[in-house]
Simulated scan of single mutants.
Amino acid sequence: MDEKPENIGVIYLSWHSEQSAGTFEQLPPTFMKRWKLYIEMMIYANPETAVHVRDKFWMGDDLYVVMALPDLQQQELLGNLLQAAGNWQEEAERGFSGAELGAMTDMRLHAGVGLVESSGTGSPVSRLYEASKRALLYGQQKEALTRAMRLQYLNGLIRGKLLIPVYQPIMSLQESGSERAAFGYEALTRFPKNKWFSSPLDLFAFAEESGEVARLDQTAREQAVEGSTGLQPHQKLFLNMTAQLLNEGSLYPDRLAKMMEQRGLSPHHIVFEITERSAIQDYGSVLATLAHYRRQGFQIAIDDVGAGYSSLQAIIELKPDYIKVDRSLIMGIHEHEMKEHIVHTLVQLADKMAIGIIAEGIEHQEELDKVKAMGVHYAQGYLLGRPGEIAGLVQRR
């Protein structure tokens, strides 16, 4: 009986100049000797990786490491390959720098991976050739491994539901009484500390570049609803979303509806907060989508008003229930006449259109006093409350 073909993984490693036309041969001879000895030892340094190494071969100064991988899902197989390649690349670049490179200080170690699963057709030789070719093409793209590792981490956050929702209070300013009440909370996304993404803005920007922003957006929204325990019957939960989801008409999948029901939430609790920084492509179709959700009781807010491309058009076309004035207009408003005039105009517009207006980014008492005196309805910012769990925020008030 024929043996079942193995999953073949190949890791490609090669030094390249990032800017000049320098080649590996121009590096000091001592470097080339040390590099070949170093990488041969490094391949077998980690027992968990070394056990899968089946062969290695040099083509000129390019190294190909052949690995036989266990039967796992494709995503996990690729993740293991990327992790091994990334570790070798990072360790090698840390060990060979400065004087080791001579005049070729812009030399970087490129790494690529190629995978042919056991279900693939062809002879062992042809399958090895295909995996090697994929690794070579992959590794010749600048920063390809870094992009792949970032995408791998992003997919892991989504699949594992590892996003961390936190909630920042939105306080009512115009109610009578000495204590301000929390009108609602904006759900914000955080994630475990890692070396791939420095901030939520960085994460969402990469997701948009990679075509994964809809999945990330939906996961963040679902986890925000899951973590909303403690929301009071009269309070609102503001959920961020991109214009892309509006354009696609996919705001309220069945899974989110079930989560809301399980936590005693109804549509009147939810405000979909649309970032004004991203373009709405077709107002006609977006209006039809929003009309469907509004009939169910959902409300709409436009975020970052004053910071993006088409604030007034979005307000006129979408007729939101709330507008959130960007922090760039609120910061230092008590001593900036032009900002005061702009926000005053927005307050007048909001009053005439029966729209709630929210001042974002309040960090100083003088800013809060100013916007309250101007008639702004609600405010949000570190002065009023930092993001946290809703239950904890409620207990502190």
Rank of each mutant, 00 (worst) to 15 (best):
A135P: 12
G177R: 05
H268S: 12
L329Q: 06
Y138H: 15
A135T: 10
P169F: 09
Y44W: 12
Y44F: 13
P200L: 09
Q223A: 10
L287M: 14
P267N: 01
S20H: 14
Y167H: 14
W15R: 01
G385M: 03
L245M: 15
R263Y: 02
V271P: 00
P29Q: 00
E261S: 04
N247A: 09
Q281K: 04
E25T: 07
L318P: 02
D2I: 10
K56R: 15
E276F: 01
M338G: 02
I300L: 15
I390E: 03
M149V: 07
G139M: 05
P5S: 12
R295F: 02
W58Q: 10
T105Y: 01
D55N: 15
D254Q: 07
A373I: 05
V271I: 13
Y12Q: 00
R396E: 15
P169G: 11
S210W: 00
S126M: 14
Y12P: 03
E337I: 13
V66C: 14
R34C: 03
N194G: 13
Q299C: 11
Q89C: 01
E363N: 02
E175G: 08
G264K: 03
T275D: 03
A224G: 01
K193C: 11
V286I: 14
K4N: 11
N247K: 06
A307E: 02
H344Y: 10
E76I: 14
I158R: 01
P47M: 13
K56P: 02
A224E: 03
A187I: 04
G385S: 04
R294S: 09
Q83A: 13
F204W: 07
L312T: 02
G264E: 00
Q232D: 05
I333Y: 01
L245R: 15
N194M: 12
S17K: 06
L136K: 14
G60K: 07
W196E: 09
P165E: 08
G9N: 10
H110Y: 10
E337H: 14
L78I: 01
E335F: 05
R221Y: 07
L318D: 05
P70D: 00
E18T: 14
D254F: 07
H292I: 12
R54L: 10
R108C: 14
L78E: 12
P192E: 11
A373W: 08
M338R: 07
T275C: 04
A354I: 02
V113P: 00
D202V: 06
F197E: 08
S20P: 02
G385T: 02
P253T: 02
T275H: 03
G385E: 01
E93P: 03
D254W: 04
G120M: 08
M107P: 08
Y129R: 12
V305A: 06
P70K: 03
T30V: 12
L393S: 11
E276Q: 03
F197S: 11
A291W: 03
L246D: 03
S14A: 12
